[in-house]
Design a protein around this nucleic acid. Structure first.
Lengths: 148, 148
DNA sequence: CTGTAATAGTTGTATTTGTAACTAACAAGC
DNA sequence: GCTTGTTAGTTACAAATACAACTATTACAG
């Protein structure tokens, strides 16, 4: 019929791998904290970098502002973060984790560490480094030649 | 604050890479045929393997039957595929592409080939092979040790 | 100042998706 | 034959997402 191999097509392969690799971790943040993907991402950004604005997070995570807005609202409702209106520019709000938010972050961060190690336990350390470096390069990429 | 690096966390990294790598191809099947992700996936399965049932596709693609059902309905409405009720087991339907469906498949398959080559144009062939092999292994994986 | 544009963040609405419940057809035990 | 269970596929409804329009505030040109 055709000698094209879908499973060797990078976007497909990456999606399958990403989905499989996310599954167990998703189970944890969902079951344990009722969080959604964008919520743990925001939590992690604040946990890692401390105080940030919604725009900062959006720029760094490549997330649209509406996603951030909703994730922040949820995390605020769960008392995992608080907002501080900026004194100079009153459009801006500085976000930071509460004690409860920090505790959740630390918990999930530990899970993430262990999970990452387990996911890669069958790979050589040198392969892990190369793999992550290559994925980083792909993630970086912004559209080059338009497709015909 | 914390020395955890989110961007080195494999599920996150894979998601970022998968999203970036899917973007341009998505643009094409969306703009050109108004398709959704599951629709091109079903189209490609039928294009590659010829006649298949919805269950066959679901098993091979790791897609839930409701996703297949809806994708098939859309493709049928666009006259890209037809259904044949099985003579032995009347629950089963055999799906195959129409001429229009085959044409769309061939078009997109060519785009996919070129896109894949372009995505990986900065990598050494040996690195490409290893990367795809590693991603395949990750995609394969089914949950091991439960996370604590 | 004042009007125009830009930016931070929110909200509304239409699509999409996920999950469970459903229908129809087959299979197997009794 | 009947009851019980299983499988193929669909449908209904709740939840999540994308995208555009919105408010509030600041910036800046004249």
């Amino acid at each position: 019929m055709s000698d094209f191999d879908l499973e060797q097509f990078l976007p497909y392969l990456l999606n399958q791998a990403a989905e499989a690799a996310s599954l167990e971790f998703q189970q944890v943040y969902k079951d344990r904290y009722g969080m959604l993907r964008n919520e743990w991402r925001v939590l992690f950004h604040l946990g890692m970098f401390g105080e940030m604005t919604a725009s900062d997070i959006g720029a760094r995570a490549g997330l649209h502002k509406t996603k951030i807005s909703r994730a922040v609202a949820k995390l605020e409702a769960r008392r995992f973060l608080v907002r501080d209106r900026d004194g100079q520019d009153r459009r801006v709000e500085h976000l930071r984790l509460t004690a409860a938010g920090t505790a959740a972050y630390r918990d999930l961060q530990g899970v993430a560490r262990r999970y990452d190690a387990e996911l890669l336990s069958d790979f050589q350390p040198t392969d892990v480094a190369r793999l992550k470096q290559q994925l980083g390069a792909l993630a970086q990429r912004r559209g080059h030649t338009p497709l015909r």
